[in-house]
Computed example of a mutant assay.
Amino acid sequence: MTTPLSYHAYHLALLQSLYDTLRAQSALLEQVPEESNELFMERFNELLEQLEQGDHDSLYLGQDILCQIISRYPQIAHLIPRDLLWYFGGDCLHFMPDEEIAQYQLLDEHRADAEARGEAFDWQQARQLIQSN
């Protein structure tokens, strides 16, 4: 049995995957000037580095980057994992319907309860259970 990733590590892995996907989709990003794409990807990489170092103050940068993906590259906005919109919160929540927000609020309550009991919480498994109901 594998140990579930921490809440932070799980979302960091999703963010890294999104970064890799965007890099691989460079042909789709051509509608924005190349130098603008380079600067955007540099900022995205900085976000990854900050989060890897445990800098949770970078959550605002994450909100900005996800919102920019949606506005700059709408053709690939569907590639953003919904979990990342919830994780970064703020303006990202505007892209989530109320029902979905309610599901994530319930997940956060379950996570807080598990942490209060000193138990490990598998975010991904819990999300799948709630979404299947």
Rank of each mutant, 00 (worst) to 15 (best):
Q53L: 13
R72V: 11
P33Y: 00
G62F: 02
G62L: 01
S58L: 04
R72D: 11
N37P: 10
E35D: 04
I65K: 00
R43C: 12
M41A: 06
E30N: 15
I65Y: 00
H56F: 09
E42M: 07
V32T: 07
M41T: 03
L29C: 14
H56P: 01
P33N: 00
E52K: 14
Q68I: 06
L66Q: 05
L29T: 15
R72Y: 14
C67G: 10
Y73K: 14
M41C: 07
E34C: 04
V32P: 01
L61H: 04
Q50Y: 07
D57W: 01
E52Y: 09
R43P: 09
L61K: 07
L66E: 03
R72E: 08
Q53F: 08
E34R: 10
Q63R: 14
L39P: 05
P74S: 09
E42D: 10
L39Y: 10
A27D: 12
L28N: 12
L39T: 11
D64R: 10
S58Y: 02
E38V: 15
G62A: 03
E30Y: 12
G62Y: 02
Q63V: 14
C67N: 15
L39D: 11
Q63Y: 05
A27I: 12
E52R: 15
N45S: 03
G62W: 01
D55R: 09
E42L: 09
P33R: 00
E49H: 10
E30V: 14
E42F: 05
Q53R: 11
Q53N: 13
L29S: 15
D55W: 02
Y73R: 14
D57F: 03
Y73V: 13
D64K: 12
L48H: 03
N37I: 12
N45F: 02
E46N: 15
H56Y: 06
E46L: 10
Q68R: 14
A27L: 13
Q53G: 13
F40H: 01
I69Q: 00
A27M: 09
V32N: 01
A27E: 11
L66H: 05
L28T: 03
Y60L: 08
Q63E: 12
